[in-house]
Amino acid sequence: MQLRRFKDIIAIKNDTGVVLNDTITAFHASNLEVAEIDQETFDKMTEISVFTGEIPKDKIDLESSAFNALAEWNSELNPDAKSGKMEFGIRSITLNVNQICNLKCAYCAAGGDGTYGTPTTQISVEKTLPQLKYFLSSVKPGQTFAISFVGGEPLLHPKAIKAINAYVITESSKYQIKPKFKIVTNGTLIKDETLEILRSMNVDLTISFDGTKEANDIARPSKDGSSTTEKILIGLAQLQKNRGQISSINFSAITSTTNTNVFENYIYLKSLNPDSIEFVFANDEKDPAVQQKHIEGLNKILAHAWTAGGEKELRKIKSVDHYFYMLDNQQKTENFCGAGKNYLMVDAKNKLYSCVWDANLKEESVGSNEQLDHEKLSKLSKSLIELNNCNTCWARFLCGGGCMHINRSHNGDKHKKSILFCERTRSLILQVLMYYKLARAANP
């Protein structure tokens, strides 16, 4: 794999893979344009590593038509590339339905047991509804308002989810808002009344499911010692027989110290026929060897998916679908997440945070109930690309500046980048760019 850069253009030549041919894929970072370039042009660019976001020195050659073509492309402005600037306005919230769980996952970032350090049973629906009414009242007609139900384990309290879901649908219709619901669950409680309640809602369902039975049961053990995977499979079979109103069933798989066979996990999870699978690297994992396996596994997955079913199969990997969509619509991302701008986390006590991982960190609270601390939020008003010093990185408008929680976890400072995060993000984007070029060059 050879990676080169000239100002705001990078190019990648794949000389090792069988699936990706050895043509050269180029990407204009601020125009979000993808192209194929010839070897002569590639030779006018400077070699860089995937670890850097800095701009290298130019190889100036004004006599060369290839160099001049490159310089001209670099200076072009693409009128179709849309800004990703985000004005303040809460459009998306994550709700901790509770802060208790029936599992104790090895890498759990919610205090190790789903409690965030403060075990809390069901959130008060009575307090939550006026809080949601307050947020809905400032959403404009026609806009989307998204709620993700998480925990703890949200399906320990399905009736609370249903009550909130029904209320938001009714309120949204008053304001002509489009509500969107998601539940992130460990998938072990999908039976009986919970199954019926799930089927009655138009939700995107994400099951945290790390892979093969062996891998998943080690990474995600249950507190009572029973097999997590067996319980998921029972619930999944019921859902696949009849999913009711559920709009999608997705898996989210975590790569962690005990679980690095990413490709084997993909083959197993794919056999269960979900609508999408996402492969996420454990937030707090700091071992470069684990990351290397994650990157290599993901590359193998993409090659397998592309060979098996082209773009359609490739886009069942959720992050690939996301990048394809952003490239197709030439929509820049200037914020990796909406923290402090359009997103809030509501914990099981109705306290508010700008990040899902801040729950229970008192100093990070940005309000409670219907009160918002605008002074604290204003510290996040600039784009994350700017706040995290990503202005020269070629991946900035697809990545959006990275994750402040991971930065803090790795470096003690939410604006100091995690090198591991940057490496795996750039590596995946490079792969996606090569497949995107293949997909769009084949169907111009």
């Binding site: 180029a26 344009e33 194929e36 042009t41 290839a66 490159l70 959720k318 679908d321 197709d328 769009r440």
Partner: peptide
């Protein structure tokens, strides 16, 4: 001839 841009398909998660 050095650079051939691909065309996006205008019409995610």
């Amino acid at each position: 001839t050095h650079i051939k841009k691909v065309k996006p398909h205008k019409s995610g998660n």
